[in-house]
Computed example of a mutant assay.
Amino acid sequence: MKNRKDYIYKNSINCPIGTINFAGYHTHSPSKMNKMRYLGKYAFAYLIDGAGFYYDEFGNKENIESGDFIMVYPDTGHCYGAADNTTWETLYFVFEGQIFDYLRANNILNPKQPIFTLKPQIEWRRKLLKLMDDFRKAKPSDTLTLIIQLQEIISHALKTPKGLKQIDKSGWVQKTIAYIKEYYLEEINYQELASHFNINYDTFRKYFKNEMGLSLTKFQLSLVMEKAGFYLCEENLSVKETSNLLNYCDEFHFSKQFKKTTGMSPRQYKLLLHTKI
């Protein structure tokens, strides 16, 4: 990516759940302009080279380095740029839509936690460049697929808030995440898990939520619903088959939980993802 000129792709593909407005590559040079700005849309910038700074109206201040992922919100004042005596290179996407509004309303997207880390960097750069190229060539029938791919990239970023390893000296947050990912289909006793790490339960649950943006139970539920989406759409299983595999007592309770979490019933979700735009 060295010495490449800035470029921008505009396609404005859209579907009922979201729109990608444009995407591109940009080189930032050190600037004395430190005024916060409001974008009016969602966006993210992935730093592929260089170093810089970030701060916002919530008081967040971070040194940004290669591999960092900056999430921008429509109504949040923010400022970022290259550090003195250096430049930085970013890949970015600008987007909007009800799926992102829904994720924010449910605190999955949290403007108070804007910086994440995606590594290995070479792999995420490859994925973002491919998504950008697909976006550039997209036809209307490709829209939903691209929105889902964009959402999946954001979901991966949300799992690794910047500074997590530095703050979590003992590594118990990462170990807790690994444990939940292994046993998310079972009933987990979080008080026992806190005791295992010799941490007060109240501190355990509050710290986890602060770092991940989700409570322990909501994080576990997000994994269940992610698996549900896979069964419904990728494996093309019925709602009943999916509820059985996810250990729900019956189809009704699964459907109720799925709608509460995603905003649509399993059948609506299945139909939406199998309908060409």
Rank of each mutant, 00 (worst) to 15 (best):
L223P: 00
V173H: 07
Q151Y: 05
G77D: 02
L144M: 10
K165N: 09
Q220W: 00
E152G: 05
K206G: 01
N210I: 12
P266L: 06
K112F: 03
I108F: 14
N14M: 06
L223I: 03
R126W: 12
I199M: 00
Q191F: 02
Y184A: 13
H26Y: 09
K159R: 15
A157R: 00
M132L: 04
E251D: 12
S255D: 07
Y42R: 06
L164N: 04
F95D: 01
M132I: 13
Q151D: 04
T176F: 04
S141D: 04
Q220C: 11
T203L: 10
D68I: 13
T160P: 02
T90L: 07
G229M: 12
F93T: 01
Y7N: 09
F22R: 02
L193T: 01
S215L: 06
E234D: 15
L91V: 12
Q149P: 02
D101M: 04
L193C: 03
D134E: 13
L150F: 10
K32C: 12
K10D: 04
D134Y: 11
N236D: 14
L118G: 07
A178H: 09
M1L: 05
I177N: 06
W88D: 03
Y184F: 15
N60P: 08
V224Y: 01
Q268L: 11
L91C: 05
G81M: 13
H274F: 08
S12F: 13
I153M: 10
F69D: 09
H253S: 10
I154F: 08
M212S: 02
Y248M: 03
Q174T: 14
A23L: 03
Q174K: 10
N21D: 00
L272S: 12
I48E: 08
N200R: 02
L129N: 13
T176I: 03
K119T: 15
A178T: 08
N11D: 08
F44G: 01
S243I: 00
L223W: 00
D68W: 14
T87C: 05
I148Y: 05
I188L: 12
P161F: 06
Y269E: 06
G163F: 04
L271P: 02
R37S: 13
F58W: 15
K2L: 03
Q98P: 01
G24I: 12
I48V: 15
F254C: 05
N236T: 11
K139A: 08
